[in-house]
Nucleic acid binder design. Structure first.
Lengths: 253, 253
DNA sequence: TGTATTTGTTGCATTATCGCACAAATTTGG
DNA sequence: CCAAATTTGTGCGATAATGCAACAAATACA
């Protein structure tokens, strides 16, 4: 269907941009700050914020706005409505216990991965991951598996659309190198990432397919970088991951 | 500040109502269904949905709309920007390991509790709880602790504003009985709930206060209803919960 | 199959929003 | 303490959204 201008509501789109201006780095915003971040007119931003405050999505102390837990209702309707988390959680719990490491399932949203389920075993990352958490796709094992499942042109487009800030000294941040790596991930059927997200963290991921063979998510395990090589890490954990992935394929529509 | 009609954006408020129409029970909506749930005109609802789809918050297959993970960005900005989850998570992990049971921290949003951090130990509930998950406050230990911290008139107002559907045969659903229970929770400093949320599930909760002594959240542990009495459950776990709560008081502003 | 009912789409007059420009208030810097 | 600079609040014309009603298309039903 063609998109007609007459069927668009500017006010809604603008309000959503204002909500997204609130991040972990900028949790408290004045009207001017919110306007700058969202790229909207100050008057419009102010009306958005007052509307959000009136409906309980924002709190206003006369100077700064902060989002309230009420906005969680907007997003968790989605998480709660997804069958995926509920279906994979038992598998994740069992796998995590079996291999003694944290396991996660994530999906792709644009150039980011979104964690939808997780079984944490021990703290290995500095940041706390939970369902809904986001990381860039290009430097994570989960992300590479899902990027590799896309048509190459689309993967390239996604990688080009966002700056590739290296997160550690090991992070691949060259487009050509990444596309080569994606090709390898595609043929070998898994992705291994060695301290590219965070110093001291390694992870191995495999795709999760539905019954029709379409990649709908990715499954990984993350562990502390020890003395053993990344090759032995793959040898140790990949079979279990692939086992769970193939079992999930039967239960996902 | 007075709320002026001229400072409100109807389009934004309407769009948010449309997003909230999508729940776990109604994940796929036609235009008419969304219009009915949100109470808006079909034409307006359609324009909202098309706008959301255009910006990637919805998917449209020509007949039904579904929300996409993109909407998680709206809510998780809030969760990510809250210092509380990050601060309490280590305490939760340690407490959970120490007592061998699942522990959670939640806050109050209207008549509902919202989980903000959780350390799962074993599956005891049929529904998967995660940060962002919601439950009615009146029948949960976490909710009762926070309701008890409110002025009585405000607690009463919240309880009256929402129908008290009993979830099990044990659920207290009489306003007077609940207010009496809240008074007891207030004096004894904790709440114990015996299979009122779900058959076979018991939980004990304590308030979490900031440095100024204001109740900002609640901490609980939930466990399977075993042969031992709820009294012995309290005896076993309450001291650990209170210990963590008092330690948290020092680190929360 | 034919009819009734629901659903999706469009036109249009009414009504509200947008963003500019300017005024008021607040903060910054000497 | 004052003045400059920044931020916040507001009036207004141009522009866009609203909701009604009418219509078309799909669906249900007998």
């Amino acid at each position: 269907m063609n998109v007609k201008q007459s069927d668009m509501m500017g006010g809604l789109a603008k309000g959503l941009r204002v909500i997204e201006a609130f991040t972990a780095e900028t949790p408290r915003l004045s009207i001017s700050e919110a306007a700058e971040i969202s790229g909207l007119d100050r008057a419009t931003t102010r009306r958005c914020l007052l509307t959000l405050a009136e409906h309980g999505y924002c709190a206003y102390d006369g100077k700064f706005f902060t989002v309230t837990p009420r906005v969680l209702r907007l997003g968790t309707g989605c998480l709660a409505s997804m069958p995926l988390p509920r279906i994979v959680q038992p598998w994740l719990d069992q796998l995590s216990e079996q291999i003694g490491q944290s396991t996660s399932v994530a999906i792709l949203d644009g150039a980011e991965i979104v964690y939808v389920a997780r079984a944490a075993q021990r703290k290995v990352m500095s940041i706390a991951l939970m369902p809904g958490s986001r990381l860039p796709a290009y430097c994570t094992s989960l992300g590479r598996v899902m990027l590799a499942a896309l048509p190459e042109t689309q993967a390239l487009e996604l990688l080009n659309s966002h700056p590739l800030q290296p997160r550690t000294a090991h992070t691949l941040h060259d487009i050509d190198a990444l596309m080569t790596e994606l090709a390898r991930v595609r043929t070998q059927g898994y992705a291994a990432v060695d301290q590219e997200v965070e110093q001291g963290l390694r992870s191995v991921a495999v795709p999760v397919k539905n019954a029709r063979g379409v990649v709908v998510a990715a499954l990984n395990t993350g562990l502390a970088a020890s003395s053993e090589s990344i090759a032995s890490v793959i040898e140790t954990y990949l079979p279990s991951l692939q086992q769970v992935s193939s079992e999930l394929r039967g239960v996902l529509s």
